[in-house]
Design a protein around this nucleic acid. Structure first.
Length: 801
RNA sequence: GCGGGUGUGGCGGAAUUGGCAGACGCGCCAGACUUAGGAUCUGGUGUCCUCGACGUGCAGGUUCGACCCCUGUCACCCGCACCA
């Protein structure tokens, strides 16, 4: 009897949908389990096998949790605002709304074909007015609290996409969307003050269960450093040059200062600078470089000494020269540093190149060779001399600086505020009105959503203006405060806005009064388990944690942290071992796999192909292996014998497999769980028949992985109800033990024989049997056994002389 | 440069955390059934020439015993990167 997977899979998908099998209950006595996967961006290309792997992990866990008796919410939605859709719309002349609707329809049918147990009654789309109304609402709350603000600074700008990018969106100096070089541009942009939450985001990591490398990456991205700010006075002016340093205790070793080429004081004091022309030339040169180029030339230090402007070292009154060099960045600290060439590699390289003095203040190393960055006794440092502990000397200096009023302890973060506006059409409109009298005014809450106007031309302006700026009816409005003629903000929010809170909306997707009902939030939060890609760790994960912390501080959500646990799946590589990409032509379409092998095989394979957290290449022949396995499972029905229990031959195998599959699923060791099921399958085949009780357990264990075939077999075998809420099998530890066990026997650490012996045999019996074993005898005969090592249930090792 | 990780058959990967290395799957080999097999089933499959020896990137060490722990070293992957 051939297994007709397409018929069976369609049948059960329809049954699940009709019966509402996966609807989460908002009020329930059961324990809740909120499983979250990163909702897809509905691209025109359709689903990718990577999506299948990303969702299959929590899919299996969710299905198992339902069988464990939990009230499970496993929702899905679409993160649909964004550039690819807009660019496609520009190219084809189709409205992004139409493109999005088509793509979502396509994704929905593809996801349903795989049989994921999503609660489709909670589906959300970030581009729907009822949804982005609340995205705008949260933005206004931030605006009210001063966390959303405008500032004119240097920003990352992608000349190709014509948009301002956040730091997170331009990692490595490349645009996240088109990978072209990002340039620095001075622009008036919207920021979200994420740096205000830097410390909370850091501390919050201590109370969540994230993969260690996920935590690590976030810690690094936040990049907290502690040190001090010191104000150096500029000679013959009232001005001070403020710097940040992690080693204020090396102040006596300062022999020059460095300012970033963009430092504003350079403009202010330009007329005092004797070599202003040379300086201008240097600054112009730096301005031409991209951030990437600037950081690439690590070895080659360049710079110009400023003639006519110098600083005074506050600890000893010495005059010190000031340089301008692009190894100092305007974006970190204060844009100026005190240089201690004796103990900083970069300062050392610069000092060597420019012939600047080097004063040692920490004992150790050889300054003729390189800077000494280790610890040691402080020298040449007046009141710090003799200190050997870095902590103490830093503390002492910080104290001294504070007393004299020339500095104080301080903290710096690598993370920058989130550049939040995009000069594009397909995003949430920023709900702000610019009034000539009142300044920036938020759109009143009762006027939300501020709708994205229907337009026909989505091209951004050549000057980097949003397409919305061209629509007069949209731009011209009245100030909500004073009623005067005013202008609307025309930029939209970045891709990451809608995804920063979507998991809250799943909890109450149709609420018109609030982003979600507080009672429901209290019941469902936090997300119990969140799975997604590593690429989102320093973007979406940071952003959404920031929004959630903010909402917590506003009393809107009941938990400080949104996600209790976070895991990540590894990439699926192409069959050639390279990252899948259209240009390489190594992309596998999940639809093709479902068509040829069925959804169960696809689901099984993406979990069986390797360690869930690691990357693994696609292998079509291994997919066939999973197909073979599924067919063998189907054939189990050919020889089912009566009996609710386990047969004597397979009893311990079943108990062991239940134990292994149960714990492997919890630990996301899906590959070994499936392997255990395959092994048990082989044991059943060897025996030639299966009891009804065994079949019941086998189907239950396999159900989360291959729900369609197991439901069908369950029904045909006459078991009760649907498998969706069938109880998860239990095991008896005592019955996992075999009656007869195999004990390897070593002589001097080398394996000589394997003893088959009763599991309850005692040490003496086993040792005696080992010494009498014909395969062991030749190695101990005539020699003295000087030591007997006996590990219960494990092995015997005889040491002879 | 800093941080994290990984090195095991022809391939993807197992190994109860110090106790039979290579589970499971792919591939390959042989056989069976077949007009046929890129279907299915059965058996085999780390390397070396047999008894046996050798085998977890490399070199040492600890131990009765090491893929696992320690020291050194090499290679690759990921993240951050002139962060003061």
């Amino acid at each position: 009897m051939e297994y007709n997977f397409s018929e069976v899979e369609a049948k059960w998908q329809a049954k699940w949908e009709e019966s509402g099998a996966f609807h989460a209950e908002d009020r329930s006595d059961k324990k809740k389990f909120y499983a979250l996967v990163e909702f897809p961006y509905p691209s025109g290309a359709g689903m990718h096998v990577g999506h299948i792997k990303a969702y299959s992990g929590l899919e299996v866990i969710s299905r198992k949790r339902r069988m464990d008796g939990y009230n499970v919410m496993f929702p899905i939605g679409f993160d649909a605002f964004g550039l690819p859709t807009e660019n496609y719309a520009i190219k084809t002349g189709t409205h992004p709304r139409t493109v999005t609707d088509t793509n979502i329809k396509n994704f929905t049918s593809q996801l349903k074909r795989v049989g994921f147990s999503f609660d489709w009654s909670r589906v959300i789309d970030t581009t729907e007015e009822d949804y982005y109304k609340w995205t705008q609402w949260i933005f206004l709350k931030m605006f009210e609290q001063g966390l959303a603000f405008r500032d004119k600074t240097l920003v990352n700008y992608c000349p190709s996409c014509k948009v301002v990018l956040s730091n997170e969106d331009s990692q490595g100096g490349k645009c996240d969307i088109c990978h072209s070089d990002v340039i620095q541009k001075s622009k008036d942009v919207w920021y979200l003050r994420i740096t205000e939450y830097a410390d909370k985001l850091l501390q919050g990591l201590e109370q969540v269960d994230y993969l260690p490398n996920v935590k690590m990456q976030q810690v690094n991205w936040i990049g907290k450093s502690t040190g001090a700010f010191v104000n150096f006075s500029l000679k013959d002016t009232d001005e001070t040059l403020r710097i940040y340093t992690t080693r204020p205790d090396t102040l006596f070793g300062v022999t020059f200062m460095v300012m970033a080429p963009e430092h504003p004081l350079l403009d202010k004091y330009r007329d005092r600078i004797a070599n202003a022309d040379a300086l201008d030339a240097y600054r112009a040169e730096c301005a031409k470089k991209t951030e990437f180029e600037r950081t690439q030339l690590v070895k080659d230090k360049t710079g110009v000494c400023i003639n006519g402007l110098s600083a005074i070292n506050p600890v000893n009154g010495k005059e010190i020269p000031i340089y301008v060099a692009d190894y100092v960045m305007m974006g970190y600290g204060t844009g100026a540093i005190m240089a201690v060439p004796a103990h900083d590699e970069r300062d050392y390289a610069f000092a060597k190149k420019f012939g600047i003095d080097i004063i040692q203040v920490i004992k150790g190393g050889d300054l003729n060779e390189s800077a000494y960055t280790g610890d040691g006794e402080m020298i040449n440092s007046d009141f710090l001399n003799g200190y050997t502990n870095k902590k103490d000397s830093i503390e002492k200096m910080a104290q001294w600086l504070t007393e004299k009023g020339i500095g104080e302890k301080g903290v710096q973060y690598k993370m920058k505020d989130w550049a939040f506006n995009r000069q594009r059409y397909w995003g949430e409109p920023i709900p702000i009105v610019h009034c000539p009298h009142c300044g920036m005014v938020g759109v009143p809450y009762d006027q939300l959503p501020l709708r994205l106007p229907k337009v026909t031309n989505f091209e951004p302006g050549s000057d980097g203006e949003s397409p919305l700026a061209k629509i007069e009816q949209y731009v011209n409005c009245k100030c909500p405060k004073c009623g005067a003629d005013a202008k609307r903000e025309t930029d939209t929010m970045p891709q990451w806005a809608g995804s920063s809170w979507y998991f809250l909306r799943y909890i109450d997707p149709n609420n018109a009064e609030a982003l979600a009902d507080p009672e429901k939030l209290k019941y469902w939060l936090p997300v119990d388990w969140y799975n997604g890609g590593m690429e989102h760790v320093t973007r979406h994960m940071i952003y959404s944690r920031f929004w959630h912390h903010f909402l917590y501080d506003q009393g809107i959500v009941p938990t400080q942290e949104p996600y209790a646990k976070r895991t990540a799946q590894g990439l699926i590589l192409g069959p050639d071992g390279d990252k899948m990409s259209k240009s390489k032509g190594n992309v596998v379409d999940p639809n093709d796999v479902v068509n040829v092998y069925g959804a169960d095989v696809l689901r099984l394979y993406v979990l069986f192909m390797g360690d869930y957290e690691k990357a693994a290449p696609w292998s079509e022949s291994s997919v066939r292996g999973c197909k073979r396995y599924i067919d063998r499972v189907w054939n189990l029905m050919e020889n089912v014998t009566d009996g609710d229990g386990y047969s004597a031959e397979l009893e311990s195998a079943f108990h062991k497999t239940v134990r292994k599959v149960t714990s492997d699923i919890e630990n996301m060791k899906f590959n070994t769980a499936i392997a255990a099921l395959m092994t048990l399958m082989n044991d059943i085949s060897a025996k030639g028949s299966i009891t009804k009780g065994e079949l019941k357990t086998y189907l239950s264990l396999l159900n989360p992985f291959a729900p369609h075939i197991t439901e069908e077999m369950w029904e045909r075998a006459g078991f009760e109800g649907m498998m969706v809420t069938a109880p998860w099998p239990e095991y008896d530890e005592a019955k996992t033990v075999d009656k007869e066990i195999e004990i390897p026997v070593q002589v001097c650490g080398k394996l000589r024989s394997v003893l088959k012996i009763a599991a309850d045999a005692d040490k003496d019996t086993i040792l005696a049997a080992a010494k009498a074993d014909p395969k062991v005898l030749p190695y101990i005969d005539g020699k003295a056994v000087v030591k007997e090592i006996f590990v219960p249930n494990k092995m015997v090792n005889l040491i002879v002389k």
